[in-house]
Design a protein around this nucleic acid. Structure first.
Lengths: 138, 138
DNA sequence: ATTTACCCTACTTTTTTTATGGGTTTTATA
DNA sequence: TATAAAACCCATAAAAAAAGTAGGGTAAAT
């Protein structure tokens, strides 16, 4: 299951996607829409900004806005950013690799090999689904 | 990522699968093989037994054994049992459904709809990969 | 009599998640 | 140029979950 942080990020992106006609959207607007704490959401939006998905403007009339085409925002990117690895085991993670302490020989580990396959097939799904798919269904 | 509990369950099943020629395998043997605490593993094996995947025999010469054909033990079953939902959001879980508190109208929620698709495609993967696939690669 | 799984309670430790608090900087506008 | 609005930044606290530990005992099989 995704953490609330990741879920909120996806909601926020959806909200920003729906309001692309506006120049900017306030944190406050999003936090009220979904009942998310303003401060918590602030951190999330900041991460999305640092990842190049959102832009922002300070001061009066400021706020956040979507900087990318929704088609160019795959779920895999958002999940990796807020949640961490997509792989089911650390020993098969592409971006967050760590060996498993209980594993004597990764090369001979059947679980490792199967989980690599699961990872690759899962990635196909999450790279294909984008923010655009969410917006289309709202 | 899977919890250690689920990972240990998969390792234990692999070990039992590799030793199907033996009548039974001791908890101790498995816990030593992977450096897992005996007590912790005990609970895991018990859950697998209650789910009908393992059988056990008490007393001298006793232990655990695989009761199912490895082909009949999909990853989805083990993960659901030890880890919980496979869905990424509670509102799209088949076995552990819960509404999302921040969601005003699930029927109109684009995130919900996309996550149903992700769930179905993920399930296809995890229902197709079985213990047998892990054993084949050891 | 011994071995082994089974069952139960409770507690600790560690890690992760979910926030909260207080101040700083930038910007528009009156 | 003062003021208010808004993002930005840093630190830390609170809550929940995961990962064990400890210790008892009971039941069944050899």
């Amino acid at each position: 299951m995704l953490s609330k942080k990741t879920k909120y990020a996806l909601h926020a992106l959806t909200y920003l996607g729906k309001n692309r006609d506006q120049k900017t959207v306030l944190i406050q607007d999003i936090s009220e829409e979904y009942g998310i704490s303003h401060k918590f959401l602030e951190n999330i939006l900041l991460e999305l900004k640092k990842a190049g998905i959102l832009g922002s403007k300070k001061g009066k009339g400021g706020g956040y806005y979507l900087i990318k085409d929704p088609k160019e925002v795959p779920l895999s990117k958002v999940i990796r950013l807020l949640e961490g690895p997509i792989a089911l085991l650390p020993c098969v993670s592409l971006n967050y690799y760590e060996p498993c302490s209980e594993c004597k020989n990764e090369v001979k580990c059947g679980l490792n090999k199967v989980m690599i396959e699961v990872r690759d097939e899962t990635l196909k799904i999450l790279e294909n689904k984008t923010l655009s798919d969410i917006l289309d269904k709202e």
